[in-house]
Amino acid sequence: MEGGEEELTAHETALYDRQIRVWGVDAQKRLSKAHVLVSGLTGATVEFCKNIVLAGVGSLALMDDRLVTEEVLGANFLISLDEYANSNKTVAELCSQSLRDFNPMVGVSVLSGELSQMDGEFFDKFDVVVVCSFSFQNKILINERCRKRQKRIAFYTIDCKDSCGEIFVDLQNYTYMQKKGDETVERQLSYPSLEEANSIPWRDLPRKVTKLYFAMRVLDKFELLEGRKPGETSLADFESISIVRKDVCEAQGLKESHLADSLLERLLAAGKMEHPAVCAILGGILGQEVIKAISGKGDPLKNFFYFDAADGKGVIEDISVHSTVTA
């Protein structure tokens, strides 16, 4: 992307002053030309939306046709209670109003429909696609559609399961300027797709990969086998998921005991519940990553991020072929 010839307006300079001091004018100009799509408006994604609207992206499109329920309101601060009462507006429509107020310079639009049903061309309008609360299969499907387009579309998934959270990043082949002391050097990163990352046998991964990575994949597998929608789980599922754990661990070459009962229990019990504090953290990290990817400034995260409020760690895991242990 070119920096562009036109200068920021005086209003933009005044409004974005503090952040331009962090990432510079060129990054700000690139941001203002980027188009972002978010599908699935949860506590974690509305945090993300807030962050990039404030940062001044060019446009943001929202997809979420649900009507408002208790569950939707959980960690969502974009829906003002008197507005949604008696309205037939969708979650996306209600959220878009608040986001426009946050920063009138950002074009916020609402698209209806199901993202996994959209054809490839639909994606060409966007530079960044973020999905939340999708089944693992649909995440893979959307990821592949993005990858098939000629332009590079950055793809992210974000999910908050109560006190735990996961972010996945696919920037495909990504080149950026890395700062090393006083010099900047060009660096290239090659990201695996979600499917490719998932196909790496666990026995080949370094031993210290966070247990959350394995636990989340077991949960995905469980939801797939049982035909559950994302987050349709409860503690009562523990026995069935234990069987899935056993099978998966055997097939992948990981000791079953590596995946503690307590962690699976927490994830099952979480269901669709989101811890607002964890949403703020995940939405903050994802916001930062998207800003980095658009501006080409700063080392981007590759390719999973995990946060667990229980130990307070926010960890990056590189799950890609070259990161595997060569025996």
Partner: peptide
């Protein structure tokens, strides 16, 4: 003495404070 500031860091920190 203007301090660099972005929304994302503040959001993350607020989450950590609440925890």
């Amino acid at each position: 003495n203007i301090v660099h500031a972005v929304a994302t860091t503040n959001a993350i920190i607020s989450g950590l404070i609440v925890i």
